[in-house]
Amino acid sequence: MGLLTFPLKYIAKKVFGEVEIGSAFEDPFFEEVEFEKRSFWSGSTKIVKKRRDKSIPERVPEIDGKILRRVRKRAYRLDMAFHIGGVRFGWLGVIGILPVVGDLMILWLSLQVYREAMKVTGGLPPAVSAQMLTNIALDFGLGLIPIVGDFVSVCYKANSRNVLVLEKFLKNKYHRVAAPVAAPRRVPITQ
């Protein structure tokens, strides 16, 4: 660990405890895939793990899938685009350095991500909408604290949390949609 990352991670752990985004530290942007790799020379195989962009859940329609993809892309740029010394941060971490104007810009950009998420078919229910707005408000409130607030805000990653909330909502929404029932067969009547 670098000289700078240890104090940041220590402070974040003290403030938030062991915070997990989603369940079991779920990554909102990438998934790990295992595949079998065969050696060209010896023919032996070994299992290799590789990260790839997270796929859209199967039952989610194309329209909502495109929205989820756009929200993921925007949230990734805002929360996790850069990697320095073991700490991932995005444009919000850079903009947050500006005292009050930066925090207002962060709020506006986070609300743009939320507005994009609201475009899903049928909109978002009030509970999901409130959860996403709470993440944004908490991030904004923490960012207003001078110096320390910017570091805590970088660790909180409200937009990444909102991506997971949206994905969970879409999975639950379209999981309940049952497969279409086949029409009953008509038996011809013979006379």
Rank of each mutant, 00 (worst) to 15 (best):
E34L: 11
R38E: 14
S39D: 15
F40Q: 14
W41V: 12
G43Y: 06
K46W: 13
I47T: 15
V48D: 05
K49E: 06
K49H: 08
R51S: 11
R51V: 06
K54V: 10
K54C: 04
P57T: 05
E58G: 07
R59W: 03
R59L: 10
V60K: 00
P61W: 13
L68G: 00
V71D: 00
V71P: 01
R72L: 08
M80L: 05
A81Q: 09
A81I: 05
H83N: 12
I84V: 15
G85M: 14
G85C: 12
G86L: 10
G86S: 11
V87R: 01
V87K: 06
G90E: 03
G90W: 03
W91K: 10
L92W: 00
L92T: 01
G93W: 01
I95L: 15
I95F: 04
I95S: 07
P99E: 10
L104N: 01
M105P: 00
I106F: 00
L107I: 04
L107A: 09
W108C: 08
W108H: 14
S110I: 02
S110Y: 00
Q112E: 15
Q112G: 12
V113N: 00
Y114P: 04
E116Q: 10
K119I: 06
K119F: 01
T121Q: 15
G122H: 08
G123H: 08
L124N: 02
L124S: 02
P125G: 11
A127Y: 07
A130M: 11
Q131H: 02
L133D: 02
T134G: 03
T134E: 08
L138A: 13
D139W: 03
D139S: 13
F140C: 02
F140L: 12
G141I: 12
G141S: 13
L142M: 15
L142K: 02
G143I: 07
L144K: 06
L144S: 01
I147Q: 00
I147S: 02
I147G: 03
V148I: 15
G149L: 06
D150A: 07
F151W: 08
S153L: 03
S153A: 12
C155N: 07
R161T: 09
L166H: 00
L166V: 03
E167L: 15
E167M: 15
E167N: 14
E167K: 14
K168N: 10
K168T: 09
F169I: 11
F169W: 09
L170M: 13
L170H: 05
K171C: 11
K173S: 06
A178H: 13
A178V: 13
